[in-house]
Design a protein around this nucleic acid. Structure first.
Lengths: 120, 120
DNA sequence: CCGTATCCCCCTTGATACTG
DNA sequence: CAGTATCAAGGGGGATACGG
């Protein structure tokens, strides 16, 4: 008989880490917040989200799209343009996102000393 | 003039990603949930948290301690024993953790198909 | 019992160049 | 404009062995 804590705990770990994996990429959160302020074209995201390579941006967008958080829409023009926007699932995850931000505001002494691990 | 979204957005990204970085390690969440169910000794965590190497466990515990989420206490016995427990900061972060778990329950179709990225 | 020290592998990110 | 291809670098995590 294992002394493991109850089963509910395993489910909570699973669920929590699933959400974390959706947000895990270095650029996932910045892209989500950007698209939360409005639909953008690929080149707009590239320019506005920060110092990101095109390869990494494409990877990030594909991942978020695969996970259902953002939608990709190709507008047939010449030259073609591609627009990205949040899906309803993407909008819904701003809930947990805000919970994290508010926790950070209340508990992390402003300068967020821990940012050693975030420092670009 | 940059067309960057407003400054508040940058702060939200910073705060959110700071929290994410606190929870980022593969074993951080499992350890936090385990300690939320009670104080444990090193060897108990090692056994109960899952298939983890001692090196990785020590790394995980040190990181959480450095970030102020857990407390390490050495009890002078022979042989010595070490106990780990949540700090009040550690308890407070269960709020965002629950927000994520609840979101997962409502929006991730049970089998959490995305777990490809979590599969050990 | 509670760790450290090495070595290794994989995955993510970035830089750069090329294409429909 | 919106990507893809390739190469290289860095860090996290695991296996194993050793130390106080």
């Amino acid at each position: 008989m294992l002394e493991q804590a109850d089963v509910g705990e395993l489910e909570m770990i699973r669920g929590t880490r699933a959400v974390l994996s959706l947000l895990a990429g270095k650029w996932n959160v910045p892209v989500l917040y950007l698209l939360a302020s409005g639909t953008r074209r690929y080149s707009e995201v590239l320019y506005e989200v920060g110092e990101i390579s095109k390869k990494t941006l494409t990877q990030t967008l594909r991942g978020l799209e695969r996970d259902g958080l953002i939608a990709r829409r190709v507008i047939p023009e010449v030259p073609a343009r591609v627009e990205y926007s949040l899906t309803s699932l993407g909008w819904s995850i701003t809930g947990p996102l805000m919970a994290m931000y508010e926790w950070a505001e209340q508990h992390l002494p402003d300068d967020v000393a821990h940012s050693d691990r975030l420092a670009a």
